[in-house]
Design a binder for these strands. Structure first.
Ligand code: NAD
Ligand code: NAD
Lengths: 207, 207
DNA sequence: AATTTCTTGTGAATTTAGGCACAAGGCTAT
DNA sequence: ATAGCCTTGTGCCTAAATTCACAAGAAATT
């Protein structure tokens, strides 16, 4: 087959496949069919097979997919073979909740720096990190050897400014929780987690 | 024009338009063009106009859109004219962060009940609510006069069970933060907030 | 009243995603 | 070997979303 660009939608589904495959592996299961995997991820077998076909051919016809091999391939495709370093900016309500979440480190995302602007929070210990002053963001990030992903959990009013600081410090991926549309250069990846929007979409469907 | 079904993608963008329009209204601006509005929400003018055209025709050619009118129409379309009642299940790290967020109530989403299973948390006051035992979920929800949206912030292992309880209590919309694919009947709307997936998508783009 | 100017609203074209249906191909049993 | 079984991989068609490009229409100007 001529290998094509992986669709955005496929990329968004790969983590779901991976999650269920890891669960299967923990249970000791070695082989899974497209039908069964699709079922558990809430999609259909044809879509699952097409998604996987973008990464290569690693099923066995008449049998199914090798769980360990699929895990390896999806992880490789998503770039999960290395550990990514994360900084969180804004240690209010949401920031500490994210910091305290064990799941990220288990999946290879390590939080290495946390920032705030409030003098009452700066210097405070949270988890096993100390809150740094956002004014020194660039220097602190340099000191920890660079950061791959920046998470913004500040008020919306300063989110763009924080994004600019992160980008200036060499961060090339941003996950933004503040309810504003951020502008970033095209070499920076941005994803938005927008909880009010989620509720409003639910509201639409309830109406 | 023959009025067609509103695309999913349009529905997901309406909240972003609304958010920026409210900002404009606060600044006292009365008229906005599709170009300028599109610019600020990170899309293009043609898409914005097409999106709005699904709701009706309320622009003035040669002039632009009336900010107040657009706010009214989008709010109506999204069902934001009434107040929606919310229950949060799981008062660990994430649950209280959501509870403490002022933004939801400002947008017409009122948290009216919070649940946990841990006896140490049950009965504790959080915000101006008291944590109820999840075992009594149905009765508590009945007592507050019903709940429209359920937010799940429990461990993944119990998320499906909690979803079933919510549905059994008459909840027809669910926002799930637990990293599992939930199964719900077709008359229930489900949205997933999946932070690990978001990070993995960023990881893909960094690779 | 006619002309100019500007921005909307929308058919049509294009691009992207989804799903069917079946040939291809590996495994097992005889 | 060979036949039968089973599940993958994918060509092709359908549906959904995006983008283009321009006619339609409102206000301002002459
Ligand atoms: N908490 C929620 O459940 C929730 C829900 C939806 C959206 N959000 C959004 O997420 C963001 C964070 O929410 P929150 O509830 O944690 O807010 P919060 O007000 O509790 O915390 C914000 C933190 O950012 C810090 N801060 C302010 N300016 C800063 C700067 N320039 N640099 C670094 N830190 C700075 C503040 O000192 C504070 O600690 C907000 O934009 C909010 O709108 C939160
Ligand atoms: N905290 C984060 O930043 C984060 C990030 C990504 C995903 N998540 C997911 O969000 C969910 C919540 O995360 P968290 O960090 O708040 O977890 P947490 O462990 O801090 O809190 C979970 C809470 O749910 C309660 N609980 C357990 N079983 C229950 C039941 N049957 N009914 C009601 N409550 C019950 C627990 O007592 C606890 O208070 C988890 O599924 C987690 O994987 C969290």
């Amino acid at each position: 087959m001529k290998r094509k660009r992986i669709p955005q939608t496929t990329i968004a589904r790969l983590p779901l496949y991976l999650r269920y495959l890891l669960k299967l592996a923990r249970k000791g299961l070695r082989i899974i069919s497209s039908y069964e995997l699709a079922e558990h991820v809430g999609t259909n077998a044809a879509q699952l097979r097409k998604d996987l076909s973008y990464l290569g051919e690693f099923g066995t016809r008449g049998v199914g997919y090798d769980v360990a091999e699929l895990i390896r391939q999806i992880s490789k495709c998503l770039g999960l073979t290395k550990e990514w370093k994360i900084a969180i900016v804004g240690m209010g309500k949401l920031g500490p909740a994210l910091l305290g979440y064990k799941g990220f480190e288990q999946e290879g995302f390590k939080i290495v720096a946390i920032f705030d602007k409030n003098p009452k929070k700066i210097g405070k210990k949270m988890g096993n990190l100390v809150v740094s002053d956002v004014t020194n963001l660039k220097e602190v990030i340099e000191k920890v050897g660079g950061v791959d992903i920046g998470i913004i959990t500040t008020p919306a009013s300063v989110a763009q400014k924080v994004a600019n600081q992160l980008i200036d410090a060499g961060v090339r991926a941003i996950l933004n929780f503040a309810p504003v549309t951020l502008g970033v250069p095209s070499n920076v990846v941005l994803r938005q987690v927008d909880l009010t929007t989620e509720l409003q979409i639910l509201s639409f469907h309830l109406t």
